[in-house]
Amino acid sequence: MAQFFTIALRNFLKGPTTDPYPFGETYTPENYRGIIAYSPELCIGCGTCEYVCPSGAIKLRHHESGMNFSYWLSTCCHCGNCGYYCPTDAVFNSNDFHTARAQSEKYDATINDDIASVQCSRCDAMIPRAVDALLARAYDEITDTVRHRASLCPDCRRLEQFERMYL
């Protein structure tokens, strides 16, 4: 028993080891995988996050003016798969751990954003944006030419390529 008394005495002198949360601050690591944060301006609507999400928390839907990204907190298991595979870091786990909600707010804990499409710079087709984060994965340097080509719809890009090479 004597062995334990030394530990007990040491603990007594050390004071409480728990944090006074919710009345005071608590330690939250920076890397903590909490609620999803989403930036629509970085998203290209590729659907990778929806494909890798094991719990079906992310849904991407097509509509007339582009796509819609939706996320429901109550079914997310905070695994981090979406953020790991997202090519542009548009979605990632923030370290916000405040997931408790009143029953009445259960269906409100969502993210719902439109991923706006842009118009092709040559015709009037609507295309998903190519954000810099994506172009940076494909090209060493994002030149004006790269940017210009990325602003074209696939048809116009093919046409322009043809004009450049054969006309």
Partner: peptide
């Protein structure tokens, strides 16, 4: 547990 939370982001499921 703190180590796991700080490095991997969760106390149990490290991913």
């Amino acid at each position: 547990q703190d180590v796991k939370e700080s490095i991997w982001g969760n106390r149990m499921d490290l991913g």
